[in-house]
Structures are given as structure tokens and as C-alpha cells.
Design a protein around this nucleic acid. Structure first.
Lengths: 284, 284
DNA sequence: AGTTGTGAACCGGTTCACAGCC
DNA sequence: GGCTGTGAACCGGTTCACAACT
């Protein structure tokens, strides 16, 4: 298990071989970093932990104090084995034969995700999406206060959006430093994205959520996540196509025949974890 | 409530309809898909194909008619081996020793993704995000015309947003059928999402892009992709935390001894699946 | 009894490296 | 020479199934 032990990989896959960065000793066998323990939570698991957290918050609100992995799994749309595995990455906080205490789990997941401290967000590009982000209630309520807004448009300068006045992108370094911004959300058109990103990095921002359809070039220590709406749509399109092509023909356009006959059988969720999406940059 | 699993016990979303490959038993034959079709394009590859398509469009605009896998890979932010593998899933349209013809590749990818036909989109929940979606120019230009808008607010009824009048959610079945909507984008608050989703399904919509922070329950034949901004933020938060906690050491990698190749300054991108595109002229 | 935690098997996807063709 | 296409090795993540514990 992960708690101090030899993380021996099974025989099938060659354990060893970590991707570079291993100060492999001169000769001996490559030992899998004994020191670097607590880490190693799979990226996919991290995404799901965020989901579990939201579900747990719901349970907490309903005064539910204890949940089993099965209950939590169903609510989160995953199977219980995976859920337990995910939770095991952050430690052992359950009680066998009983389940998990909601409050404890919430606290531990928050700690793992680094939510115990606030992360101020700056939104760049105050178009439709920028407005949506600035007003999105889900951010502040989850520890991500929007602390700064930027745009190029002179007409927007000083105008408050969601309670925060818009500043000029040239002021990104100064304002971000002043307000201690740690996350930048780029909602500009594709063309200006890289420049905006450079300024954010210059201002010390290490995490970027990119909605613009471009590949951002950033230093190694900066983390970029991309959300591309057009890509999401095309993925759906692919499934539509495959589906109809499988149905032989005539999908029965108005097939309202079954209507609710389907009912909610199972939770068919393609993206068990999280899917990126979107990238809208509208600029009248 | 917890639907205590009586009889259902599923919980696991089997992704495909007919994967059915039960190979737990060791009775010998592997039982290879009886009805093996042209399927089998990895989900992750589909996402990347959409990215390649965008990059290719850029090349086409610049009058570039031929590209090598290496050029395309760099522009798309992936390595060439992966790119070639991805393209091989849709067929062999390259010329050894030369490369790919841009126009041909665009056509083939569009065909694969089902973009040769239009997919009308309905946006439900005309708040900030809904507005952004309704006005997103990237949709219509890529074959996803927004054909209907819905909301609950009486004040919005009939008001045109992005050129399309808002209808009441109660009219989802009728309007969606009339306008042949195939994709529904749910941008409502969490509480109303499931109900809206049910109506969409009832209206025959088989693909849903969900922006609401809830796990939607849908029949097996419906495809749901979820976009959760709060989750994205939390993933970034996790990396911030991990990073700062690692600050105790120098960020620079240890002595690499010798140039062991590799190097390859990759574009640090956390997103495992989709890598952004590159406008190829990202530098003003 | 009931449920967690986790080694081990398993699988999908990525990377390697080279055969095949221009 | 260069570049594509792909089998095979590899790796990370998922699922299984059971030991450990309450």
C-alpha cells in the first residue's frame, strides 16, 4: 500500500523505470523513490476526488453523517471499488464494517486538493464567457474567489462585473501581485491568449485554465488545463454518428414511441471522471 | 434515500453496449467480438482527432497542402507516433515519404467525427453561461448551429439571444422535435438539471453536454459528457498544493548525467486526453 | 454479520522501433 | 534519403476478489 512499504510493482509489468528525473544510482537497481512517498495520486483520481467532495457536501447538508463506499459511489456515478481505491490514495479514513464519516472525508479531500487555502482567480477576457466566469457562484463558494478581471476594451475599464472592476491587461502583473492571484482563467480569443498567458506567468501565476483554442507555451513549472467546447461537441458528434450507423438506418426521427419507457436504468456516463470542454470566445 | 441496490447493484457504467467480452473465465477461446465493425477508435483518440482537425484547418487557410506527421504533431501538441497511430484508426490516407494531404485528412476526419452532417444544438438555461454558449461563434462555424434556447424565466420568453428566441422548458419536447435537435447543452443550475435532461431524452435527444454540477441519470443509449468548471479549478488547486509542498527542493532536476536524449521540451500539459491546438501563428 | 483497504490481474491507451513504401 | 503505418512492448489506471478489521 502506499503508506511506507515497498511499492513493488507486480511482475508482469516491469516495475522500475521511472521517467527520467530519477537520480538513479551508479549501479544498483533503480529503487523507486522511497522518499517521494505520499505523492502519486493518479490524475484521473484527483478529478474524481473533486466529484466525491461535491457529493459529500450534499450528504452533509442532508445531515447524513456516515456513508458506505457503495452509497457514495452510486451518488458519484462510479463503482465502489474504484471509489475505495481513490480514497485509499489519500489515506485510510474509513471504518470497516461501518463506512466513512462524511465530515472526516470532506476534510481529508479538501486537504489533499489544497482547498484549505483560498485561491484567488483572475479572469482575462470579459466577453460572454468571461462574464459567466466572473458571475459563476460555484467558484467563490468553493474557495476560488474571483479577485481580478482584465480586458483590452477601454470601454470596460473600471466597469464592475460581478462586483469586480475590470482592469487593463497591461496591469496584470501589478494587480495579480497585489491581490495574490494564483489561478488565471484565459477566456480571450485565440490570438491574444499566449500573450496574456505570458503576463500571467510573469506575475507569478502558476496555474492556468485555458478556454482559448490554442496550445499555450509555458515554463515547466506552470500547470495548464484546457477546456475546449468545440472538441466536446465533436466528440458527441462522433458518438451520434457511430450510433446511427449502428442502427442500420432511419433512426426514427421523432421516435417518441418509447418515450419514458426507458426510464432511468443505469447511470450511463461516458466520462466517469471529468471532461474538459469548451472554449468560447466571443467578442462582439 | 439511497436506492439500496436491490437487483440493480450495477453502479458501474459499462461503457460500450456490446463490449460484453467476458474473459474472466479461462475456458480457452477468447471469444473475439462476433460483430466486429469499424469501431474501436479509442475515446482519447477521438478527442485528439478533433484537435488535429482544427490545426489542419489552420494549415489549409495558409495554403499549406501537405503536412508530415511531425509537423502536424508539433502543431497539435502531441508526439508524432501518437498522431500517426490516431490517424491509422481512420484509415491510411498518407503517402510514405511525403506526408498527408491536408484536404484529404480534413475530409476523412470530418467524416469520422460525423461532421458531414449538421447537428443542431439546444441550450437550456439562459444565464451567463447560456448566453455565452448561444453566442459562441465556434459552434455554427463548425457545424453545430444553435437551434433552440430554453429557460424557465417568463421574462425571457421570446427574447432573442444570439438571434434565437427563448422558449419555455416545457416546450422542449415539441421544439426539439420540430428543429431536429440532436445535442442538448444543459447550462442550468444543479437543481433543475435532471428534469431538463429527462425532457431532452423524452424529446429524442441522445447526446448531452452537461455543465451543471450533478451526475445525470440517463438511459443507456444516451451519451453524456460533463464539464465542470469547479472540478477543473480543484484539480489546479491540487497541483498548486503539491507544487508548493515540493518547494523544499530545488525545482531543477538533478544532474542528468549526460544528455540522455529525451530532453524534448514538451509542452507541459496536464490534460491527459486532449491537447490543445496551435494556431501556428500564436505569436503576434 | 458488514465494509474497508489493497495486492494482483486486467485492460486500454501510449510509446517504441522498424518494416514497408515512395 | 524520408515518411507512413503498425505490431509489440510498456505503462497507468481500472477492476477483481479477498484478507483485515469492526
Amino acid at each position: 500500500m502506499t503508506a511506507h512499504g515497498e511499492g513493488v510493482r507486480d511482475g508482469d509489468a516491469h516495475g522500475a523505470e521511472e521517467p527520467a528525473s530519477e537520480q538513479q544510482s551508479s549501479d544498483g537497481v533503480a529503487i523507486p523513490e522511497p522518499q517521494d512517498r505520499a505523492k502519486a495520486i493518479p490524475e484521473a483520481a484527483v478529478a474524481r476526488l473533486a466529484v466525491y467532495l461535491r457529493v459529500l457536501s450534499g450528504f452533509a447538508e442532508q445531515e447524513v453523517h456516515t456513508v458506505s463506499s457503495e452509497e457514495l459511489a452510486v451518488a458519484a456515478g462510479v463503482n465502489s471499488a474504484k471509489l475505495r481505491k481513490d480514497l485509499s490514495y489519500i489515506g485510510s479514513y474509513g471504518t470497516r464494517g461501518v463506512g466513512y464519516e462524511v465530515a472526516v472525508l470532506i476534510g481529508q479531500i479538501e486537504r489533499t486538493l489544497g482547498l484549505t487555502q483560498q485561491h484567488s482567480v483572475a479572469v482575462i477576457g470579459i466577453g460572454n464567457l468571461g462574464h459567466a466566469l466572473a458571475n459563476y457562484g460555484g467558484f467563490p463558494s468553493r474557495g476560488f474567489p474571483v479577485a481580478a478581471l482584465f480586458d483590452l476594451d477601454p470601454d470596460l475599464m473600471g466597469v464592475p462585473v460581478g462586483g469586480i472592476p475590470v482592469d487593463h491587461v497591461d496591469d496584470i502583473p501589478r494587480v495579480c501581485a497585489e491581490r495574490d492571484v494564483t489561478i488565471g482563467a484565459i477566456a480571450t480569443p485565440a490570438k491574444g491568449a499566449q500573450e496574456v498567458c505570458d503576463r500571467l506567468v510573469q506575475a507569478g501565476v502558476r496555474c492556468v485554465l485555458n478556454f482559448a483554442p490554442v496550445v499555450l507555451q509555458v515554463p515547466e513549472e506552470v500547470e495548464v488545463r484546457k477546456v475546449d467546447l468545440a472538441v466536446e461537441m465533436q466528440i458527441l458528434s462522433f458518438h451520434v454518428a457511430r450510433r446511427s450507423q449502428e442502427t442500420s438506418e432511419s433512426t426514427t426521427s421523432e421516435a417518441e414511441a418509447e418515450a419514458d419507457g426507458a426510464a432511468q436504468s443505469k447511470t450511463r456516463d461516458v466520462n466517469a471522471g471529468v471532461n474538459p470542454v469548451d472554449g468560447m470566445v466571443v467578442r462582439p
